[in-house]
């Protein structure tokens, strides 16, 4: 039962070691061998993969602040890799979610169009803006996510009395089998325009900071548009496969995708996620939730201070 704390402690230990090693390198000590950082990156992303699954967070959300805060890679490469991490995870999960009707194509496509278009704008802006400004912004966003994790409430089956005009025109509705009720749950959405406007912001954030922004997708789909929680989570993961694709192309074309950073991260996260799914059965969600909150707060404050040059 103490396993989640073990993983959290292990990840924190590696992160505590990381900046000291980096500092030693910067202070004129002999530079570490090239393979040390990619190897450490693989270990950390493996642990983050476990923690992210158990905490129900997307890989990119935990990856970017932690790796940019504690590794010597430039934020551009970390954001590029972060998008690839989120994309690989979403692509791997997408088919099952679609087949089980937990990701709804008609709900995902309109919001994905808005989010992906603005993710391109966000990516271009993020690469053009001064690094310190983006790093500070990243710190603020991550601290904001911590606050959201502390106060956010989710609704398993939000009450949608009737679909709005746009949802009806686009035919956004569906049904899925809910094992806990042993029944098919029919659903539709409302406040579609408001949701689409919020996806403008989500796209900008995803592109600018290289984070998957699944946490925000779920909140808007579930709390604003009224999709059942399971549909919101599944659709969020599926739409990340489109949103992150558009931003990832921008980073790739601008040279911000370094294979030595991106590939160990993707592989580490994918392997960690597989272990995380198994750990999930035995984990104590409350303990893991607090571990991830502490980890994110630590990373957010570090990103914020690093951006300010402290």
């Amino acid at each position: 039962m103490t396993r989640p704390i073990g993983f959290g402690s292990c990840a924190l230990s590696v992160l505590v070691w990381a900046p000291s090693a980096w500092g030693a390198e910067g202070a004129g000590s002999p530079p570490v061998a090239w393979w040390v950082w990619p190897s450490a990156l693989f270990v950390v992303t493996f642990l983050l993969g476990i923690v992210a699954v158990v905490a129900g967070l997307g890989g990119g959300t935990v990856y970017v602040p932690i790796v940019s805060g504690f590794f010597p890679f430039h934020l551009d490469f970390v954001r590029g890799a972060g998008l690839l991490v989120a994309l690989a995870g979403a692509l791997a999960a997408g088919p099952d979610l679609l087949e089980r009707r937990l990701a709804d194509f008609r709900l995902a496509l309109p919001v994905a169009l808005v989010a992906s278009a603005f993710a391109v704008v966000g990516a271009l802006a993020g690469l053009a803006l001064p690094t310190r400004l983006v790093q500070t912004g990243l710190g603020v966003i991550i601290i904001g996510i911590v606050v959201a994790l502390l106060i956010a409430r989710r609704s398993d089956f939000p009450r949608v009395t009737h679909a709005d005009r746009l949802a009806r025109a686009l035919g956004i509705s569906g049904a899925y089998h809910e094992p806990s009720l042993d029944a098919d749950v029919a659903w539709t959405v409302h406040r579609t325009w408001r949701g689409l406007l919020l996806f403008v912001l989500i796209g900008l954030l995803a592109g600018m900071f290289g984070i998957g922004a699944g946490w925000a997708n779920v909140a808007v789909l579930n709390l604003v548009m009224g999709a059942p929680l399971k549909v919101a989570v599944g659709t969020s993961i599926f739409l990340l496969s489109i949103t992150d694709t558009s931003a990832a192309w921008v980073y790739l074309n601008q040279g911000a995708m370094l294979p030595m950073v991106a590939v160990p991260s993707v592989v580490g996260m994918m392997l960690g996620s597989r272990v995380g799914v198994r750990v999930l059965e035995r984990a104590r969600p409350r303990t893991v939730r607090w571990a991830i909150i502490v980890l994110l707060l630590f990373a957010g404050v570090r990103a914020f201070l690093k951006g300010l040059g402290v």
Binding site: R106, P110, A112, L113, V120, A128, V250, N253
Partner: peptide, 26 residues
């Protein structure tokens, strides 16, 4: 029709992002 237009627009966005035509100014 509605989804044809949405999918077309999405394909256009992805092609534009992939094209390399969008360049960061300095």
């Amino acid at each position: 029709t509605a989804f044809i237009l949405i999918v077309l627009a999405e394909i256009a966005v992805l092609f534009l992002a992939a094209s390399g035509l969008l360049v960061v100014g300095h």
